[in-house]
Amino acid sequence: MSVFVEDGGSGAPTVVLLHGQGASAVVWDGVVAALPGYRCVAVDLPGHGRSGRLPGYPPDAYAAAIAPALPAGRLTLVGHSLGGMAALALADPALGLDVDAVVVLAMKVTWTEEEAGRRAERARRPPDHFPERAFALRRFARLAGLPGTTGDDRLGSGVAPDGAGWRLSHDPATAADPPVPPGELRALAGRVVAPLHLACGDRDPMVGPADLALLGPPVTTLPGAGHNVHIEQPRVVAKLVRAAAPAPRPAA
């Protein structure tokens, strides 16, 4: 299957940006703008945006699909929410990628039974159909946490034609399986050899520092930030990336 990436800038290391559930690479625009001097590769995860779909979406399937689409050389992996899980899987030394650091933002580690039930129910619903593209763009912007307007062409990565109308490009089946258990996520984190950095906002209604700390390393709490910290405070996230990643150097 195909994985779509937006590749901008030059130099090393490459910062790989992995979005959360229902979003696309467009959510990283502010962070990319705040990282001059770095090569930034923003990925549409499988089952999202302009990428193809998978028959199933466990962590290793995300990693196996994304890895061939990444450039060679040193990589700093940055993942938000679902993208954090994909980052942990990509950093497994068994994949052979040259990973300098991993930054995981606001990844949900524990789920209540009610939360898991709502997730499964959403996955069973047929995709919404929109008679006009503007309606689909508005829904994508809301689900992705973007403040953009229906006239923003960048939002087009989240919608697709659907017969006489439009639908979201996100595959509902990405949430069909139960959430990955905390022990499995901790095991993924335990296989990461590169420095692992964890962070979440102190106003995040979905993820708290104690939840994220189950992965092992200390958690940086970001004041005034909610779940979509990369959209709300892109310069703060860029600062985290610069602190985690080696200093950029010009491409050879």
Score class of each variant (00 low, 15 high):
residue 125 R to P: 01
residue 111 W to K: 10
residue 161 P to M: 07
residue 202 D to F: 04
residue 113 E to D: 14
residue 197 H to M: 03
residue 217 P to L: 12
residue 63 A to M: 09
residue 80 H to Y: 13
residue 234 P to T: 08
residue 235 R to I: 02
residue 104 V to Y: 14
residue 61 A to C: 07
residue 15 V to T: 04
residue 24 S to K: 02
residue 159 V to C: 03
residue 248 P to I: 15
residue 249 R to S: 07
residue 44 D to F: 14
residue 22 G to S: 06
residue 134 A to N: 01
residue 31 V to C: 14
residue 243 A to P: 00
residue 49 G to W: 07
residue 70 L to Q: 14
residue 57 Y to K: 10
residue 41 V to N: 10
residue 12 A to V: 14
residue 43 V to E: 05
residue 180 V to Q: 01
residue 33 A to Y: 08
residue 213 A to P: 01
residue 10 S to G: 15
residue 197 H to P: 05
residue 235 R to G: 14
residue 219 V to N: 01
residue 34 A to W: 15
residue 28 W to N: 01
residue 189 A to H: 10
residue 99 V to E: 12
residue 99 V to I: 07
residue 222 L to G: 12
residue 175 A to P: 00
residue 232 E to K: 00
residue 80 H to C: 06
residue 2 S to F: 01
residue 12 A to W: 13
residue 98 D to F: 08
residue 70 L to P: 11
residue 225 A to L: 11
residue 157 S to M: 08
residue 25 A to S: 15
residue 191 R to Y: 10
residue 155 L to M: 08
residue 50 R to A: 11
residue 54 L to D: 10
residue 219 V to H: 06
residue 40 C to D: 10
residue 159 V to Q: 12
residue 96 G to A: 08
residue 85 M to P: 08
residue 55 P to R: 00
residue 185 L to F: 12
residue 11 G to S: 05
residue 159 V to Y: 07
